[in-house]
Simulated assay, not measured.
Amino acid sequence: MAKRTVTVNSSGRAAVAPDVVRLDLRVGHDADDVAAALAGASEGVARVGTVLRARNVANADIRTLDVTVSQRWDSTGAPVGFTAQQRLTVTARRIESVGTILEAAAAAVGNALLVDQVRLDVADRTDGLRQARDVAFADARDKAEQYAALSGARLGAVLEVAESGAVPMTAFASVAASRQASGGMPVETGDLDLTAGVTVTWELEAAE
């Protein structure tokens, strides 16, 4: 006779304090030809890199995401040149330094700098995800116990456990426009939610 089982899906969430900010930046340059556009964008990225390192951003925390070149057209549809852009992701490990980092980068290249995203993150998610898994499993057990009671049985051994998802929820930092006395733009961090999902199968035993 086949075993009676119950399988439930559940998720858990843990709130953690973000300790890093990921900046997605772009530096662009317009020129008459592709080579000049690329050279200008590279020069701008180099200037941004210099000011980032001067503000204690490590080399390992500055990474090129991609480089693109597109043709520009005027209002009549005639080609007028090219635009090259390089995208960087920068990890700021001192959250309070984000405003001054952005201001310094903008001062280095002016309007050639675009800020695509300012994202909160946690450098080490291990403890937060462990907490989220604890919550997910406890919730799964609670559901399974209810289903077991409804079916006139009780929970037996765990037969199978599978993680159905363990990812951080997207969170974006709010960068205020006003300056503080210390200089720079303050970043409002709040909390970051980490989530974990689990699917658990228990054996159902006859109720005593």
Rank of each mutant, 00 (worst) to 15 (best):
V27C: 04
V27W: 03
G28T: 14
G28K: 12
H29Q: 15
D30L: 09
D32N: 11
D33G: 04
A35L: 10
A35E: 12
A36S: 15
A36D: 12
A37S: 14
L38I: 05
L38N: 12
L38K: 15
L38P: 03
L38F: 05
A39Y: 09
A41D: 14
E43G: 15
E43Y: 13
E43C: 07
G44A: 06
V45W: 04
A46D: 14
R47K: 14
V48R: 01
V48G: 00
G49F: 12
T50E: 15
T50A: 12
T50Y: 11
V51M: 13
V51I: 09
V51T: 13
R53E: 14
A54S: 10
A54F: 01
R55N: 11
R55W: 05
N56P: 05
A58F: 03
A58Q: 13
N59A: 11
I62D: 03
I62M: 04
R63N: 10
R63G: 00
L65S: 07
L65V: 09
D66M: 00
V67T: 14
V69Q: 11
V69M: 08
S70G: 13
Q71L: 04
R72K: 13
R72T: 10
R72N: 15
R72C: 14
W73G: 09
D74N: 15
S75Q: 14
S75D: 15
T76A: 11
G77H: 06
A78S: 13
P79D: 04
V80E: 04
G81F: 03
G81M: 13
F82N: 13
T83E: 15
A84V: 00
A84R: 12
A84L: 14
A84W: 08
A84M: 09
Q85S: 07
R87G: 00
T89W: 04
V90H: 05
V90N: 09
T91M: 08
R93S: 08
R94Y: 03
R94E: 11
R94C: 04
E96W: 10
E96K: 13
E96A: 14
S97W: 01
S97L: 10
V98R: 15
V98S: 10
G99F: 07
G99L: 10
T100E: 13
I101G: 07
L102W: 08
L102S: 05
L102H: 01
A105Y: 03
A106T: 08
A107D: 07
V109C: 03
A112I: 12
A112W: 03
A112D: 12
L113S: 06
L114C: 10
V118W: 00
V118I: 06
V118L: 05
R119Q: 09
L120K: 09
V122N: 05
V122K: 03
V122L: 10
V122G: 01
V122M: 01
A123L: 05
A123S: 10
D124H: 09
T126C: 01
T126W: 09
D127Y: 06
G128D: 04
G128A: 05
Q131L: 04
A132S: 01
A132L: 03
R133I: 08
A136Y: 00
A136C: 06
A136G: 00
F137T: 15
A138R: 05
D139L: 00
A140G: 04
R141E: 13
K143I: 08
K143C: 09
E145M: 06
